[in-house]
């Protein structure tokens, strides 16, 4: 549905997007992840025909953004970084205008406006001036505007920025419910958002593509070994953490043990397994066998946060190493 090949975008001096290629299948939700200034907004602007690419190509539903922009625009709903709102219009009036602008027939407009108002929970502010709405409500009107003409492809630039926690959850659900008949690409720098609502993630940093994969694959690829957090309790008498530690290290498959915290008669550890070993059952048995109580045992997944830091740090690390080589 979306096909990007060798996309490069250069502003006067800055190279904002540098040779990015990716594809998105129909019906997928893809998260576009990157730190500030990574080039997310720029890529989205190229996809929506707002900016022409400097080099490379982008296709939406088989139409090239440079050659057939009108066909592309018909199929795209776009929520820009700042919602494109007219402060002196009422919400309902604004949505009707956008509906007609997007080519809906005048019979369809009121019907669709009602629908999106319900979906985005803005029915109660329909008669209000947009200029008098709170930031979160503006964001919702922006989202309503993007899905109004039921486009095949949705491009959402930070759709949940400025929303309250309840609304964030609702918006994520809304986005998930739109997947299937819509192909969605959303940008964010909140990693948990990608974990929650996306099937695939594309990570970019400083204009370059760092990784693209499914969320689970990406986690597994970087993790390799299992990490487990333990909290151990001794009901009668004090606990000698050195002893516990020794005991844990003896368990088969454990590569190393880190003491996290001790308090009176309880202590917590983080245990890492050897590559490809599962150690939770063994650990539990060892602890209980020694007469201690197991207060908590949970696997610690590598969060996207960690993945992200690893990937972007690696990117930054490379040139430094090269420099050192030159010196040597």
């Amino acid at each position: 549905m979306i096909k990007v090949e060798g996309l490069t975008k250069r502003y006067a001096r800055t190279l904002a997007v540098d040779d990015i290629s990716f594809e998105v299948e129909k019906g997928q939700i893809v998260g576009f992840l990157g730190p500030n200034g990574a080039g997310k907004t720029t890529t989205m602007r190229v996809l929506t025909c707002f900016l022409p690419p400097t080099a490379g190509s982008a296709q939406i539903a088989g139409f090239d953004v440079l050659e057939q922009p009108l066909e592309v625009k018909k199929r795209i709903g776009y929520l820009p970084e700042t919602p494109p709102l007219y402060p002196d219009m009422e919400v309902g009036e604004y949505l009707s205008f956008v509906g007609r602008l997007k080519g809906l027939s005048s019979a369809d407009v009121p019907k669709r406006v009602n629908e999106v108002c319900d979906r985005c929970a803005i029915s109660d502010v329909r008669m209000k001036l947009i200029g008098k709405l709170s930031k979160g409500y503006r964001q919702r009107v922006g989202l309503a505007q993007a899905i109004l003409h039921n486009p095949d492809v949705l491009v959402l630039d930070e759709p949940t920025s400025g929303l309250d926690p309840k609304q964030i959850i609702e918006t994520r659900e809304l986005i998930r419910s739109l997947a299937g008949d819509h192909t969605i690409i959303l940008s964010t720098h909140i990693l948990s958002e990608v974990e929650h609502s996306c099937e695939r993630v594309i990570i970019i940093n400083q204009g370059k593509l760092v990784a693209q994969d499914t969320v689970t694959n990406l986690t597994n690829r970087l993790r390799g070994s299992e990490q487990v957090a333990l909290e151990i309790l001794c009901v009668n008498g004090a606990l000698n953490h050195a002893e516990v530690r020794q005991r844990l290290e003896q368990v088969v498959g454990v590569s190393h043990v880190v003491l996290k915290d001790t308090k009176d008669n309880r202590c917590s550890f983080e245990v890492e397994s050897l590559q490809g070993r599962s150690i939770r059952a063994e650990l539990a048995r060892a602890v209980v066998g020694a007469g201690w109580d197991l207060n908590e045992l949970r696997p610690v997944g590598l969060s996207l946060e960690d993945i992200f830091l690893q990937l972007t740090a690696a990117e930054k690390g490379e040139p430094v190493e090269k420099k050192e080589e030159v010196k040597a």
Binding site: C49, K73, I76, Y78, P80, T82, P84, Y86, L101, K102
Partner: peptide
């Protein structure tokens, strides 16, 4: 105000 982004990404 950035509404130019709406106009220029609409099929017009």
């Amino acid at each position: 105000s950035g509404t130019i982004e709406l106009l220029m990404t609409s099929p017009v």
